[in-house]
Design a binder for these strands. Structure first.
Length: 495
RNA sequence: GGCGUUGUGGCCGAGUGGCUAGGCAGAGGUCUGCAAAACCUUUUACAGCGGUUCGAAUCCGCUCAGCGCCUCCA
C-alpha cells in the first residue's frame, strides 16, 4: 500500500503516521478486565476493537506482541470505603475464595472472547503473578524520591514529580486545578496531596488479599500493575498502549508518571482510547446499573431488548462505528445490523465458492477501475486509524460487484482474472481475518430435520419411493436416520 | 465548577473546505410460476445564528442541547 497507517494518538490529540520503535516488531499493551464480575458489553467493545487492531497490524506484516492483563488483585472499591476490595467483597457475598471468583470470571471472559471470535493475546499476565515486580518498581520510585511512606502505605508524590515532569499531559489536566478540586475524603488523610495516588496499601485486618512487602502486609496500587507488566514484557518504552477512554485519567496518567519516575522514560509512543458504549445516551457501566451482559443480548433476556441478537450481529453492530466514537445501543440499530451482517456473510459464502471462469465477456475498464478503487479504499480506510465503519462501507460496495458477478449481470471476462483475484482475496481477508466476522449456523437444526422428515412423510404417502429413498439417504449422510414405525415416522441420531 | 467532546437525512453511522460513504427502512424498476434474494434508479441531511472563503455540513465565533472525565469503571 502506498498509504501508511495513521493512528490517533491521545497524547498529542491528533493522528500521526505509525512508526514502530523496532520494525517489524510492535509492542501493544491493553488494559484488560477486572475479574470480580461478568464483563459487560461495553468492556467487550474495547477488547473487540483492539482485537481488530491486533489483526490488522498482523495483516500489515508486523510481528505484534499483544499483552492484555487480567486484574485479579482486588483494588479498593473507592476511596470512601477503605479496607474492603472488590474481589474479597464479592468473595464474602458469594462465600467463595477470592481466587475462586477470579477463576470463574476469567473463564467467563475467555469464553466470551471466543464467542466473539477474538484471538487470544500473546501474553495475558495476571497482576497477582507480578507482586514481586511491583514491589521492585515501588523501591525504584522510593529511591528516585518520587514516593513516600506513611504507616506502611506508599504513595506517589505527584507534585514533586510535576516539578520536572508534566503530570496531566495525557488527559490535558493542570495539576493546580486538580489540587483545588480534589475531594475531601477520609483515606486521603495519609496523602500529602489529594492528587497523590497509592503504590502500596497496608491491608486492614479484614482485607483478605494481601502480600508481604518491606513496608507492610498489603496490596499494590491499581495503576502499578500495568506499568510493571507493560515494562516486563514490552520494555521501558513500547509502541501502543490502549484501553477505554475512562481509563485515560487517572489510570493511564498515573502509569506515565510511574514509568517516568522509575525509569526516566516515557513508557508509550501511541496512546489509544476507545470510546464508551451508551444506553439511551448514557455511558454503560456497572455502577450505573445500565449495563448489558453479553448473554442477555444473545438470549434477548433483558427488559430493554425486543429480542435476541447473536454474537456476530453484535460484533458487526459495534464495528459499524469507529472505536473512538460513542455508540448508542438500540433495538432498531441492532436489527439493522443483523440484516447488514447477514448480507455481508452471504457475500462471504458466495465469493469463497466463486472461481474465475473465462466467459468471453468484453473487458470493461470502468468496472475494473471501480473494483480496484474499492479494494484500495478498503486498505486506506483501515490505515486511517482503523476505521472499520468506512471499511465496512467499502466492503458493501465490493459486495455489489460480487453479487453482480454471481447473477451474471457482470461477466468474469469484463473484470479479468487479476482484478477478480484481488477482489476475492480482499473481501475474504477483510471480512474473515481482519474484522473477523464468521458464519453463524442457525442454531435450531432440528427444525430443518423436522421439515425434511415432513417432506419424507408426504412422499411416502404419495408412494413416490424415488423421492423417499433420496431423502432417507440425504439424512443418513448427515447422521440422521428415519424410522418408519407402525406408530408413525420419526427421526433419530444414527447409532 | 474545571477540562473535554458530540449534535449528519425515518433509524444507525462514516466522512470531508468544491468530487455518490455504507447499512436498515421507504418508493419505482429489472428478474421471477409464486416468494425471496440479487441488481438498477430514487426521496427527506449535515442543531441554530453570525463570520472567513470564489465556494463550508466541513474552518472561526457565539447560542442551544446532549454526553464524558474530574471517584471504581473498557
Amino acid at each position: 500500500m502506498v498509504e501508511k497507517l495513521r493512528i490517533y494518538n491521545s497524547l498529542l490529540g491528533k493522528k500521526e503516521t505509525f512508526e514502530p520503535i523496532e520494525p517489524p516488531y510492535v509492542g501493544m499493551y491493553v488494559c484488560g478486565p477486572t475479574v470480580y464480575s461478568d464483563v459487560h458489553l461495553g468492556n467487550m467493545r474495547t477488547f473487540m476493537s483492539f482485537d481488530v487492531i491486533y489483526r490488522y497490524l498482523s495483516y500489515l506484516g508486523y510481528k505484534v506482541r499483544y499483552v492484555r492483563n487480567i486484574t485479579d488483585v482486588g483494588h479498593l472499591e473507592s476511596d470512601a470505603d477503605e479496607g474492603e476490595d472488590k474481589i474479597s467483597k464479592k468473595a464474602r457475598l458469594e462465600n467463595l475464595e477470592p481466587m475462586e471468583i477470579v477463576q470463574r470470571y476469567t473463564t467467563g471472559f475467555h469464553r466470551l472472547t471466543e464467542i466473539f471470535n477474538m484471538l487470544p493475546p500473546s501474553i495475558e499476565p495476571a497482576a497477582t503473578g507480578h507482586i514481586v515486580e511491583q514491589i521492585g518498581m515501588i523501591r525504584q520510585l522510593l529511591d528516585n524520591g518520587f514516593a513516600y511512606e506513611v504507616n506502611g502505605s506508599i504513595y506517589f508524590d505527584v507534585s514533586k514529580y510535576n516539578k520536572d515532569h508534566n503530570y496531566g499531559k495525557l488527559s490535558g489536566r493542570k495539576i493546580e486545578e486538580m489540587m483545588e478540586s480534589g475531594r475531601d475524603l477520609a483515606s486521603q488523610e495519609e496523602k500529602r496531596n489529594t492528587i497523590d495516588f497509592a503504590l502500596w496499601k497496608k491491608a486492614t485486618p479484614e482485607h483478605i488479599m494481601r502480600w508481604p512487602s518491606p513496608w507492610s502486609d498489603g496490596f499494590p496500587g491499581w495503576h502499578l500493575e500495568c506499568s510493571v507488566m507493560g515494562t516486563k514484557y514490552l520494555g521501558e518504552t513500547f509502541d501502543i498502549h490502549g484501553g477505554g477512554l475512562d481509563l485515560q485519567f487517572p489510570h493511564h496518567e498515573c502509569e506515565i508518571a510511574q514509568s517516568v519516575g522509575a525509569y526516566g522514560k516515557d513508557p508509550v509512543r501511541y496512546w489509544m482510547h476507545t470510546n464508551m458504549l451508551t444506553v439511551n445516551g448514557q455511558k454503560m457501566s456497572k455502577s450505573l446499573g445500565n449495563s448489558f451482559l453479553p448473554h442477555e443480548l444473545f438470549t434477548g433476556n433483558h427488559p430493554l431488548l425486543d429480542e435476541a441478537y447473536s454474537p456476530m450481529t453484535t460484533k458487526f453492530f459495534m464495528l459499524q462505528s469507529h472505536y473512538s466514537s460513542t455508540l448508542d445501543f438500540s433495538n432498531e440499530a441492532l436489527k439493522a445490523a443483523r440484516k447488514g451482517y447477514k448480507r455481508m456473510i452471504n457475500g462471504l459464502r458466495l465469493i469463497k465458492e466463486m472461481e474465475f471462469a473465462e466467459d468471453g465477456a468484453e473487458r470493461d475498464e470502468k468496472n475494473i477501475k471501480q473494483i480496484e478503487q474499492i479494494v484500495s479504499m478498503c486498505h486506506s480506510s483501515m490505515n486511517d486509524d482503523f476505521n472499520t465503519a468506512l471499511t465496512i462501507g467499502q466492503l458493501f460496495n465490493l459486495l455489489k460487484k460480487i453479487n453482480s458477478l454471481h447473477t451474471g449481470q457482470l461477466g468474469f471476462g469484463a473484470i479479468g482474472r487479476e482484478t477478480f483475484d484481488k477482489m476475492k482475496s480482499t473481501y475474504i481477508d477483510f471480512v474473515e481475518n481482519i474484522l473477523a466476522l464468521k458464519e453463524e449456523d442457525p442454531s435450531d437444526f432440528k427444525h430443518l430435520v423436522e421439515a425434511m422428515v415432513e417432506i419424507y412423510r408426504e412422499a411416502k404417502f404419495r408412494k413416490d419411493f424415488e423421492q423417499v429413498d433420496k431423502l432417507r439417504a440425504g439424512l443418513k449422510a448427515n447422521g440422521i436416520i428415519v424410522k418408519d414405525m407402525k406408530t408413525g415416522i420419526e427421526w433419530a441420531y444414527e447409532e
